[in-house]
Each structure stands twice: as C-alpha cells, then as structure tokens.
C-alpha cells in the first residue's frame, strides 16, 4: 500500500551528491513530493529530508541503495506517525484587500499566520504547519486575491532517534578490516574439514 514516507539521509558535504540521490528516484520513476537539504546536529554533516508516496517495500529497497552511495553515512525512512514535521508557507496578499476584508484577517488568525512584511501595496504572511493545513489556507486565500504563494519542503525530526553523534563515532572508530590473506579455517583444515 502506498503511503507517505519521510526519508532522512545523513551525508558528507559533497558536490554532486544531491544529483546522485535525486536520480535514484527519477530512475525508478518515483516522484519526490518534497526535498530539503540542511545542516544536521553535527557540524559538517548534511541532512536530506525527502518525502515520497510509495509502498514500504519500494522505500526500503531505495533506502538501501541510497545508503550504498560512498558519501552517505546513513539513511532512515519513517511513516508520519514516527516523526514530528513542519513546513513553512509564505503568502503575498494585496494590503488593501487585507484591510478591506475582515474574512481574510479572521482566516489568517485561525491558521496562525503572522505578517512578516507589511507594505503599502502588499503584505507577506507566513505560516508553519502540516501540508494539509497550509493547502487549506491557500485554497481559501486563492479566491481572496492571493498574489504569490510558496511552500517549503518538509523538515522532520525522528521521534525515536537519539541523534547521530553515537552512530558517527561508531563509523569513525570502525577501523579498516585487516587484509585477509587466508582465513583461519583454511589453516586448520584438518580440524574443521573432516573429508
């Protein structure tokens, strides 16, 4: 069954990695609903947040492929009930309209929007929330003279995660494996192999 999954990818800061990750989706003809790159809790390590609508089986395989990229430290996928997430939206309205129409003001208050810029000719409001709420507000404002609208990508925190510090330490500590020339069992053939 398809549903919304949020994929979180911890990576090195490497030019070209965004493309490498993006084409893994397009190759499978999977539409990216939202994609955000940002710093993470650890300096120098980037965090991708990608939202797709897919079946779990597909997501699981995709995440394994993403993790295979040399510069990817770790990738996780989560359903919506496993994360806290937000998106930001900006709305530009005509200031005259906002002043004239009480409906607009009421709406903005209902959705917790706040003004970030007020000018004579236009006003820019901002809201944060889930996509559905933002979409609803956009829809109603649309009929009330919305001039410009933009919504950011989702950013998400994983409920069960205790951050990436420990994992990173694990990775950094992981010493390269000894070059195996012959394995221990071959040297002790008589004990192990009785034939």
């Amino acid at each position: 069954m398809k549903q919304e999954y949020t994929i979180t990818v911890y990576t090195e800061n490497h030019i070209g990695l965004l493309n490498r990750i993006a084409i893994m989706f397009s190759r499978r003809k999977i539409n990216i609903e939202s994609l955000n790159t940002s710093p993470s809790e650890i300096e120098g390590i980037h965090r991708f947040t990608i939202v797709i609508n897919e079946a779990e089986d597909v997501v699981k395989k995709l995440v394994r492929q993403i993790e295979k990229q040399v510069e990817v430290l770790k990738a996780y996928y989560n359903t919506n009930d496993e994360i806290v997430w937000q998106q930001l939206a900006l709305y530009k309205m005509s200031t005259d309209k906002v002043i004239a129409d009480v409906k607009v003001e009421r709406l903005l208050r209902k959705y917790g929007a706040r003004a970030v810029v007020i000018r004579k000719d236009y006003t820019v409001f901002e809201t944060t929330g889930h996509r559905e709420e933002i979409d609803k507000l956009t829809e109603v404002l649309g009929s009330l003279g919305l001039i410009e609208f933009v919504r950011s990508a989702r950013v998400a925190i994983i409920n069960a995660s205790s951050g990436f510090y420990e994992k990173l330490q694990e990775f950094e500590a992981e010493k390269p494996g000894e070059e195996i020339v012959e394995n221990e069992f071959l040297d002790k053939q008589d004990e192990v192999f009785s034939m």
């Binding site: 430290l73 990173l168 990775f171 992981e174 390269p176 494996g177």
Partner: peptide
C-alpha cells in the same frame, strides 16, 4: 587510502 568514514565496504 584504507578508510572513508561514510563508506562501509563490508
């Protein structure tokens, strides 16, 4: 080179 922290060959 024999170690890259983001890369786990095995």
């Amino acid at each position: 080179c024999n170690h890259i922290r983001s890369y786990r060959p095995k």
